[in-house]
């Protein structure tokens, strides 16, 4: 199940890298384009807009109801539908949201959320600068992490707002 959508790849230089499809990236994520399986016509138009393997995309905003999404490449903002963005494979750049990282040790860098969210984090005793270990989990489910020796289950939506860096 896990390997269906989240492909894992061993890269000798970088260690474990997580490759996901663009539609799975939450807001505020930065990622590098790996490849796209889009039809030729559409791919060449995106190329004209600077969407090439190796280039960085920033996920800016999702529309109400989660689709489409506005992306930023170079200095151009464009909106793409999930139907199209799911054909584009990307590699998140750290700091990345907790929801897209694979298992391993990470450091919490920042929270991208409102007051209520930060309150929630406080009650879960997750702090900025804290070291956490992500346990294996299935995609789209709650994420099991170990922080300060405690086992915490973090919901998928919340994990979208916790930005972490590889330890």
């Amino acid at each position: 199940m896990l390997y269906d959508k989240i492909l894992l790849r061993i890269d000798l230089n970088k260690g474990m890298v997580c490759i996901i499809t663009l539609n799975k990236c939450p807001e505020n994520t930065r990622c590098i384009i790996v490849e796209s399986d889009l039809p030729d016509a559409f791919r060449s138009r995106l190329m004209g807009l600077g969407w090439l393997p190796g280039r960085e995309i920033k996920v800016l905003r999702k529309a109400p109801f989660g689709d489409p999404t506005i992306y930023l490449v170079d200095s151009t903002e464009i909106s793409l539908r999930e139907d199209d963005s799911k054909f584009i494979k990307v590699e998140p750049v750290y700091p990345a949201p907790l929801s897209v990282v694979s298992e391993g040790k990470y450091v919490v860098l920042r929270f991208e959320g409102g007051r209520v969210f930060i309150q929630k984090m406080k009650s879960l005793e997750i702090k900025i600068g804290q070291e956490i270990t992500v346990l294996p989990h299935e995609e789209g489910c709650k994420i099991n992490v170990i922080a300060d020796g405690k086992n915490i289950l973090i919901g998928y939506g919340m994990a979208n707002k916790i930005f972490v860096e590889k330890k």
Binding site: P39, R45, L46, L49, T76, E77, I78, S79, L80, D83
Partner: peptide, 9 residues
Amino acid sequence: ETTPLIIEM
């Protein structure tokens, strides 16, 4: 078919 959509902002 639906045409893929790119809207520039």
